[in-house]
Design a protein around this nucleic acid. Structure first.
Lengths: 240, 240
DNA sequence: CGCCAGGTTGATTTCGCTCAAGCAATGTGG
DNA sequence: CCACATTGCTTGAGCGAAATCAACCTGGCG
């Protein structure tokens, strides 16, 4: 748990190249480095909580972070999973209010934080940085609308298929026989929270998919014999 | 249907003050004015179609614009309603790809368009403009996530209540007896498309709300005796 | 006048939520 | 090392919500 001391250099951070910071210049990086602190998180540890005041923005360096939103009652939805290079907390930073969602490490993770003041100063000086945030915010909004659309258009079954396909894109690997293998990075409860249903329903849908031969589940391991078949079955839902 | 000729001045446009353009300086406005065209639309006319290449961004001057997304099959979801001052098409502008949704006038409307080249030039010169787009994109993403959360947490009934409350905030007015009156700006089919259900279900939910005394429907007119009761009934859903 | 889009209503079935029980793996305190 | 709690997962029964299919009404409009 090493609080960032004198010098952490974003230039040398591999993930920076695919983060919101990609494309900004060296002096700007120097500046950011001064307000930077880095922390390691254990599984389940909280990076920030919904309702906390914004203390800057966070950049995932390693591991996985779950972004959750909890409503008045305590029902929580898993809005998205953040991976190395992703930036967190920038929305409440720009809107100047408290965090609207919580961030929690799934497994060990490393996250850097750029202090609020530092970032404000850096933005004032670097138009490029501003442009970075525009595209970041735009693609985030795009993402949210995509999720929203499929939430509206698909049944629970279809949504689970979609999530499986997405997870395969990131976590899957090819088996010798040509099927895709996937180690689920999250519990079934969280899968349920992603598609807005109960974990029991997820279980049942999995059983159904298995019966249909579209996927086989064994603990956290998933075998998808033909990914295209899974996609097709999902799209079939749209066409009646 | 007057194509914008020599000079349309954004400075004199009342809606500009509450649009994404608020806070930019005069020279920048001048610049934008050169690439500006204005058009009037009749009810149902299309501003741009999903799949069209991006030709710039649009600013609603008068009327209402529906933003729809249509999936492979033709099922369309109504993502949001845009009002004067709202900016459209900026996402595909910044991501450099085709429009991901369609914009269609609901009733007569006037929309200005800033040509792609002009905007690119203006952005290069004005950091302030960049900042405007950051906050625009951020609040748009925020909005999408809010909608998403309530889509997950609420039943169809709850979602319809929420939409009614939202519409009342914008279109409602107080009756002498203290109840809120609302003229629905959209068809029941579109209401259904907003909450992700069928128009029959909307009809039935309305009947139910009427029976419960929470709202009275007569054609497009809605009378809500006690708005707080409607809100309460919606929130009750979250708590069990 | 007939057509059509928008709306309502009914009958039937499918889906998914709720409550509940049970199982396996893991951890924990005595 | 065992008894016990906890967590993650599965499965069943019952029920309510909503999708689907379909009939029918209404007002506007050619």
């Amino acid at each position: 748990m090493s609080k960032g001391g004198a010098h952490i250099d974003c230039c040398e951070c591999l993930v920076a190249s695919r983060s919101v910071w990609a494309g900004i210049d060296r002096p700007c990086f120097e500046m950011l480095g001064k307000g930077l602190s880095r922390r390691e998180y254990g599984s389940g540890q909280v990076v920030f909580l919904q309702g906390d005041p914004n203390a800057g923005i966070y950049c995932v360096r390693a591991g996985m972070i779950a972004i959750r939103r909890t409503d008045a009652n305590g029902n929580s939805a898993l809005l998205k999973l953040a991976y190395p290079g992703d930036t967190l907390g920038y929305r409440s930073f720009f809107e100047g209010n408290e965090h609207r969602s919580s961030a929690e490490a799934i497994g060990p993770a490393v996250v850097c934080r750029v202090a609020r003041r530092t970032l404000l100063a850096a933005i004032a000086e670097s138009p490029a940085l501003n442009r970075c945030f525009v595209s970041r915010a735009v693609s985030d909004a795009e993402n949210a609308y995509n999720t929203l659309t499929r939430q509206v258009a698909l049944s629970n079954r279809g949504r689970l298929c979609q999530v499986l396909v997405d997870l395969t894109a990131r976590h899957g690997y090819r088996d010798d026989d040509g099927s895709d293998l996937l180690h689920l990075p999250i519990t079934r409860r969280d899968l349920a929270a992603m598609i807005g249903t109960r974990h029991e329903t997820v279980s049942r849908i999995m059983a159904r998919l298995e019966k249909e031969g579209l996927a086989a589940f064994s603990g956290r391991m998933v075998r998808i014999p033909r990914l295209d078949a899974l996609v097709a079955s999902m799209e079939a839902e749209l066409n009646g």
